[in-house]
Simulated scan of single mutants.
Amino acid sequence: MSHNCENEHFEHNHNHEHGHEHTPPMETSSVQSLFQYIDTAKIRCLNAESVNIPSGIAMYKVFLKPQSEKDDCERYLQSDTDCQMILHIPFVGTCKIHSILLRTNGDDDSEGELSSPKNIKLIKNYRGNLDFETIENFKDHHTVESPQTDMPVSDIVEHHLPKNNSWYCDSLYLIFFEDNWSSDEDELCRLYYLEIRGEFLGISKSREQVPLMTVYESAPNPVDHIKLESEQTHINMGL
């Protein structure tokens, strides 16, 4: 485990294909943000709701914020029925991903029913039907461990991807908040800020041929994800 600085950079990555990464992480900077290359109109989310979003503002802006607003924690994305949450973020072309920066919630008793996210799966170029059961059992992924904090809001934490793995994303990029530090699946998680850093390599010719499939339950069942996955309705976070 090593710590660098964004507000805080945290490195505790588990690569399920190539083992642990032992070489020092690549230094990144804010100029490598891929913010402008995200296809915001096609962002999707499962088991999540936006909080404190002004009327008329696109819903994805609760967590995809310009760097000038990265410390704004008044608006955020929160998991809906339990601690799990999936973000589906497409790019307008091919990108090479270096790292992902996240600001999440901590274990603050005053907030109630919240726990710090723990394991977060990162999946590139996923083209299957999007549901929790499939994602939980999906083998081709990279997992990062988010640090636990007793503060209401965590620092911004940078999770570096392994240098020995080619993280080229030509269409789809998934982020799966899998569990939390309390091991209580009924406790919710929040995402205040997300930034992806890397290189934009150009427009992918095949990108528009890939269908985008998601599911979302408009009236969540707090018991489990079974009803969530069976409703098969959509949420478009870009409109």
Score class of each variant (00 low, 15 high):
M1N: 13
N4H: 12
C5W: 13
N7Q: 09
F10G: 11
F10W: 14
F10L: 07
H12W: 02
H12G: 10
N13K: 10
N13V: 03
H20W: 10
M26C: 04
E27V: 06
Q32K: 08
I38N: 00
D39R: 05
R44W: 06
L46E: 03
N47L: 05
E49M: 12
S50D: 03
I57K: 14
I57N: 11
Y60D: 01
K61R: 15
F63T: 12
E69N: 03
C73E: 14
E74M: 14
E74D: 09
R75I: 14
Q78P: 04
C83R: 01
I86D: 07
P90K: 14
V92M: 03
K96M: 02
S99I: 09
I100N: 10
N105E: 09
N105F: 00
D109G: 08
E113D: 10
K118L: 09
I120S: 12
I123Q: 10
G128M: 03
N129T: 15
F132V: 02
E136Q: 10
F138I: 11
K139S: 13
K139Q: 11
S154F: 02
D155Y: 09
E158C: 07
L161C: 09
P162R: 01
K163L: 11
K163E: 01
D170E: 12
L172N: 15
L172D: 10
Y173F: 15
N180L: 06
W181T: 07
W181V: 08
S182I: 00
E187C: 07
L191E: 00
Y193V: 07
I196K: 01
R197G: 04
E199W: 00
Q209W: 12
S218G: 08
S218M: 06
A219Q: 09
P222E: 05
H225F: 13
I226K: 05
L228S: 13
E229M: 12
E229D: 15
M237L: 14
G238V: 07
